[in-house]
Computed example of a mutant assay.
Amino acid sequence: MPSIDVIIALSAAQCRAHYAGSVEHVYASSVDGRRVLLPAQALRRVVTRDGVHGVYRLSYDTNGRFQSLQRIGDRPL
């Protein structure tokens, strides 16, 4: 399954907009500098009370559809 590592930094307040349904997609930066669009619903699996912060592996199918989002580390410096 193809994947890309992305850096996500969202506050708890920003995540509430995703839960409320007012935001359907989230932009993140890949570790190699690309801009990546992912479904906001993917954050529901990884959000904490502080929001979403760190490096995540975004996996998708061969058609480019979201499959999973897994935390793999802290945000790089």
Rank of each mutant, 00 (worst) to 15 (best):
P2G: 09
S3P: 05
I4T: 04
A9E: 15
L10V: 02
S11Q: 04
A13Y: 00
A13C: 02
A13W: 06
Q14D: 02
Q14L: 06
R16M: 06
H18T: 08
H18E: 07
H18W: 03
H18R: 05
Y19K: 14
A20T: 11
S22G: 15
S22E: 10
V23I: 15
V23R: 10
E24T: 15
E24V: 11
S29P: 04
S30N: 00
V31A: 12
V31E: 14
D32C: 05
G33E: 13
G33M: 08
L37D: 15
L37C: 13
L38P: 09
P39V: 07
Q41I: 09
A42Q: 03
A42K: 01
L43P: 08
L43C: 10
R44M: 07
R45N: 02
R45V: 03
V47E: 00
V47M: 00
V47Y: 02
D50L: 03
H53P: 01
G54Q: 05
G54T: 02
V55K: 10
V55I: 15
Y56M: 12
R57P: 09
R57V: 08
R57D: 10
S59G: 12
Y60A: 13
Y60D: 10
D61H: 05
D61F: 10
D61L: 07
N63K: 05
Q67T: 07
Q67M: 12
Q67A: 13
L69S: 07
Q70I: 10
R71I: 08
I72H: 08
G73P: 13
D74W: 08
R75T: 15
P76Q: 12
L77N: 13
